[in-house]
Amino acid sequence: MTLRTEPRLADPDGFYAALMEAHRGLDEAASRRLDARLVILLANHIGDDAILREALALARAAGRGA
């Protein structure tokens, strides 16, 4: 299996709103921990080391600036 990169979310706007809602009222540090908890939960769900490393590389490459 490889990382699926085609659009897959049924309700992208709804998901995005839920993500923003999850961060509401949190300070920088708490937000950062929330994202980290989310990454760990999703990584465990995926459970495939090759896919996770592919996602890491892709995320890193897509960043702008240093």
């Binding site: 980290a36 908890r37 990454v39 760990i40 939960l41």
Partner: peptide, 24 residues
């Protein structure tokens, strides 16, 4: 780093209720 601290604390926060985080 700040990211390393956030991840460490996130793992510890999850570990109490979720076995999935304990190996980390």
């Amino acid at each position: 780093s700040g990211a390393a601290l956030a991840y460490r604390d996130a793992v510890l926060e999850l570990a109490e209720q979720h076995a999935l985080a304990r190996p980390l």
